[in-house]
Amino acid sequence: MTRISSVFQPGHTALITYITVGYPNIEATLKVVPLLADNGCDIVELGIPFSDPLADGVTIQKASFYALKNGVTTKMCLEISKELSQKVKIPLVFMTYFNPVFCYGLEDFCTACSKSGINGLIIPDLPPDEGSQLEAISRRQGLDLIYLLAPTSTEDRIRLVAERSSGFIYLVSVTGVTGARDGLPSDLDKFVAKVRRAATQPLCVGFGISTPEHASQLAKIADGVIVGSRVIQLMEIDDDFTSVVNFVKELRHALDKSR
């Protein structure tokens, strides 16, 4: 059992939050992650910004743009994760696109991740069809490579991801990019059930999850919820992150109450 999979316990729905490293600035990243951990998050996704985030909506596009403007590099993200992993007890995963990883060198990147307290990787533009090499290397370094499934995924693809994903499976709630949305798609429970029949991994739902109501609904069907864009929007509101902390508490409460 990896550190990530140990998060998923019976009777507990995991809360996973995403932030872009270096947005609005590096101090904010160092400050907010311990707050997330202390207020009910089970895993934090640290986004390594990429210049061309084609799976992301406007909020994370903007955060990536400014993070890069702030001079954030992959190396800096590794240093920050090292520092954070000493401060918090929850698992940390990197979420980024394939090119920064490829450019760093797969072997070097995974080694550095492992030394920096990273427990897993989510790379939205790396489907399992292209992932064999990184999968082998990340496994050697004790990192989970978490694959994604989408509402468009066929039975064959669900089986493929069920065979290959480690840690959990990331279910993309909608056909679309990341970003806060008003409602959840009506057929989400069917999608989760379909994957459940083929997979033994925990199933976490992300993209568009932005309210405690969403979290309540998902607690009934999924093993974890992933919230990104809304967290980033709330980080913009106040310097001491009161809004984010309150939001995370509400999510935690909604998840715990709904089980």
Binding site: L54, A55, F98, P124, D125, L126, P127, D129, E130, Y147, L148, L149, A150, P151, T152, S153, T154, R157, V161, V172, T175, G176
Partner: peptide, 23 residues
């Protein structure tokens, strides 16, 4: 059959698009 010209090409896309590319 995976869309490679030697070392180049492939399909580095979000999962949502993989079925569409297959189609």
């Amino acid at each position: 059959n995976k869309g490679y010209f030697g070392a180049y090409g492939g399909r580095f896309v979000p999962e949502t698009l993989v079925p569409a590319l297959d189609e």
